[in-house]
Amino acid sequence: MQALARPRACVYAGGTDLLVALTARQPWTAGISELVDIKHLDAAKGIAALRDSLRIGALVTADELASSAIVRREASALAEAAAVTSAPALSRRGTVGGNIVTPHPAGDVVTALLALDATAEVLEDGATSERPLADFMTSRSRKPSRGRLIVAVTIRNCRLSAFEKFGPRAAFSRSIVSACVTVLDGTVRVALGGLSSRPFLAAKTAAAAAEGHPLKAALMEECRPPFDGRAPVSYRLALADALVGKALLRARRS
């Protein structure tokens, strides 16, 4: 942790985003001259079953999530998201923590975590605190984490859950739109990826979905689709409508 507090240090876990950024000399990496490899940090490893929740270490990879029997049983949407988020070799390196701090409009694992009411365990200035994961979805620009480390996330078990992804290719692509629907304590939660600067909880859309109302108006209100040339805005909203519908159907049946 002392290492992380150093001004030119950056957390290094799977490296699937960081290494690419360093190689490309993306501006936000200009100040980084030291990598702090945290892969030995035991507190950030493993998936632990608690009474009605799961504690998932920040170092857990997408591959581990997708193949974990307990995740597939207790929070299937998360396993689904992890299974489709990238390609085999990459999914063995990409971590939960990395997915949280990478400021991309979509982030399949993060989208699922939000719908599963995730809280993040954060280590900062020697102390640990619990914060809602949504708090970390505000950053628009990339910067190396200084002296702050996400150690784990805790999600609520939810057997009524489903994740839907839509990308520009059938496999191995960043989502254009993704949707995760969970039904927790009878309440429908909808998290959306690709419809804002970061994945977010779409409360109005969830309310409309729960009532069986059309989603279009709520989606138009809540979404701020990014202009990244990957798909027209109207299409993204139509996709969101379709994906939420699909996910809700599957969530209720599962």
Binding site: A87, P168, R169, A170, A171, F172, R174, G229
Partner: peptide
């Protein structure tokens, strides 16, 4: 050109 990689250029994978 802003599509500067295999993914952004839409090159088919074995699954596509």
């Amino acid at each position: 050109p802003v599509s500067l990689g295999f993914e952004s250029c839409g090159v088919p994978t074995a699954v596509d």
